[in-house]
Design a protein around this nucleic acid. Structure first.
Length: 415
DNA sequence: GTAAGGAGTTTGTCCACAGACTCTC
DNA sequence: TCGAGAGTCTGTGGACAAACTCCTT
């Protein structure tokens, strides 16, 4: 995880794609996500200016920085002087937005930049150069986006596109996943949200205000043994700062840790660390459910962790009516979350229904498995793209043209 | 304290096939 | 030494079964 684009390795990474688990510069983001219809559905968002490790969730107008939930809470939730800062939600987007589109989605990008100085503007300019070249190959438009005066993007799923606008007619309109909340978030509001999405990675260099972009690689963290210590060295440091009473066991969910599976260790540990942080900050959150109820079992704790991944495009962002299961998956969200059951709700729901079948349990596990994509780095995006659309019979790939019972694209069963 | 059994969780395997990789000429 | 062609290997996701772990009795 560095500051450079995972694709070209040259330009500075600007956005993070959860589906690809990759940090990309704007140009590569554009290139990669214009490849096919599936890739265009990947939701991307800005990076946090503070920690460089989380997707930015709000834009502080006073400080002119983009912040993830954790940094927002650290900066605004705990400081009375800063708690009155006006903050603006940052939208996720999909598709292949042009520079003009991005600036309309994130109008503060150019506002906060000194002309000709920022990486942002430079990259936007670069995108404009290649824009016309790529545009011809772009697929049909899907959504119409309007921007109201306050900067809140609205998505209209009516397929009517302003052909005369900068979208160029054939351009793939970015599907903006806008946040339903009011823009000017009171600090307390984010406080209540934090337990779902916190991450202790706050160790980061301060950035100048013009540096809107920096490294963000949440899901791409290689949770193998080599990076394990590196990663959790940070985590533990912060954990120790945050919870003086918490030992290693409070940080790590121990019972699932298997020495044979370092990836699993990392995943569980990551869950545990998040849990620990949630526990630590929970008392500060008056409106949230009790930490005990949240953390009463590991399933719930995992959901809390997965909610962190999902927050920017699910919990805090309205999904468009056109959003599909694939979109949800792109957001890394558990379908349990999507079913409207918030992860912070007391675990009694599960225990109250002992009739839950094994199949339900397996389904839950599968959802967890899906959300664990952060632990797995996809080495070949093209293979993933193919696997994503390949028809199956009982989960197994079938020859092209053969009968199938599952089509990932249509979500239909055909025998 | 221990064993049995149920419930829940995790792991390994299978499949097709594009593309990466290796080898030969 | 380089390039072309042929052959082999790798990795991708969903479903399933088996193995494993945990908890209650």
């Amino acid at each position: 995880m560095g500051y450079n684009c995972d694709f070209c390795g040259d330009q500075r990474s600007v956005v993070y794609c959860r589906s690809d688990a990759a940090c990309l510069c704007l140009s590569c983001d554009r290139n990669v996500h214009s490849a096919n219809a599936l890739s265009r559905r990947h939701s991307r968002t800005l990076l946090c200016d503070r920690c460089n490790s989380q997707p930015a969730f709000v834009r502080c107008a006073e400080e002119r920085v983009s912040l993830c939930l954790n940094c927002d809470w650290m900066g605004h939730g705990t400081s009375t002087s800063n708690s009155t800062h006006k903050r603006q939600t940052i939208n996720c987007y999909t598709g292949c937005p042009s520079s003009a589109e991005l600036s309309s989605i994130w109008p503060f990008l150019l506002q906060s930049s000194s002309p000709g100085e920022s990486t942002c503007e430079q990259e936007l300019g670069l995108m404009s150069i290649t824009e016309n070249i790529e545009r011809t190959s772009w697929g049909p438009t899907e959504n119409t986006i309007s921007q109201n005066g306050t900067g809140v993007a609205e998505v209209y799923d009516d397929h009517n596109v302003d052909k005369g606008s900068g979208w160029g007619g054939s351009s793939s309109i970015p599907e903006l996943i806008s946040a339903p909340q009011a823009l000017d978030l009171p600090a307390g509001l984010t406080d209540t949200l934090l337990p779902k999405s916190c991450c202790p990675q706050t160790k980061c260099p301060a950035l100048c205000e013009d540096d809107l972009y920096d490294d963000f690689n949440m899901d791409e963290v290689d949770l193998n043994l080599e990076n394990y210590e590196e990663l959790f060295g940070v985590t533990l440091n912060h954990s120790e700062e945050l919870f003086e009473n918490g030992g290693i066991d409070s940080l790590f969910g121990t019972k699932d840790m298997s020495a044979a599976d370092s990836n699993c260790q990392g995943a569980v540990a990551a869950e545990g660390s998040s849990v620990g942080l949630i526990n630590a900050i929970q008392p500060a959150s008056s409106n949230a459910a009790s930490a005990d109820s949240i953390m009463s079992n590991k399933t719930d704790s995992f959901l809390c962790f997965t909610a962190r991944q999902a927050h920017s495009s699910l919990s805090f962002s309205g999904l468009t009516g056109e959003s599909s299961a694939g979109d949800y998956q792109d957001c890394g969200a558990s379908s349990m979350l999507l079913m409207g059951e918030p992860p912070w709700c007391p675990p009694c729901t599960e225990s109250s229904f002992p009739s839950a079948t094994r199949s339900n349990a397996v389904m839950r596990y599968k959802e967890k498995k899906k959300t664990r994509k952060f632990e797995k780095r996809v080495r070949y995006a093209s293979r993933k793209a193919r696997a994503d659309v390949r028809k199956r019979v009982k989960g197994r790939f079938v020859k092209a043209g053969d009968a199938y019972d599952y089509d990932p694209l249509n979500q239909t069963s055909t025998c």
